[in-house]
């Protein structure tokens, strides 16, 4: 099954990102929303983990949440930016949604 994983926590505050990366399978999709978008920034100590995930999973970030936080200009290569319409499309395209709260 194709699963869309959502992560809404800063990786510096909680382990939601780590758990998502540990338990998501190749071919699944990961979307960063809310404070989760900080994981999509280049140059952080989590950037290598994200780049590794991009190799076998599709990684997305919610643009409005990046814009709001002033970090839209620093996105790791290979991450796709979506808006709320794109979020809806991802939910529809995948078989189920798993929130890493």
């Amino acid at each position: 099954m194709a699963i869309l994983h959502t992560v809404n926590k800063s990786p510096f505050e909680r382990n939601a990102l780590a758990s998502c990366l540990r338990l998501s399978k190749a071919g699944s999709a990961i979307l960063f929303i809310e404070d989760g978008v900080y994981a999509a920034m280049s140059g952080s100590r989590f950037a290598d983990d994200i780049s590794a995930a991009i190799a076998d999973r599709k990684v997305y970030v919610l643009g409005p949440d990046m814009e709001a936080r002033g970090v839209a200009g620093k996105i790791i290569d290979g991450i796709t930016v979506v808006d709320y319409n794109g979020f809806v499309d991802l939910v529809a395209e995948n078989d189920s949604v798993q929130a890493w709260l």
């Binding site: 099954m1 699963i3 540990r22 338990l23 998501s24 399978k25 699944s28 078989d95 189920s96 949604v97 798993q98 929130a99 890493w100 709260l101």
Partner: peptide
């Protein structure tokens, strides 16, 4: 194991996370 759990999760149609 994490691999086994990932497989079980992959089969789920609905996941409730709180």
């Amino acid at each position: 194991s994490r691999e086994e759990l990932a497989d079980v999760m992959d089969e789920q149609e609905v996941v409730f996370s709180f």
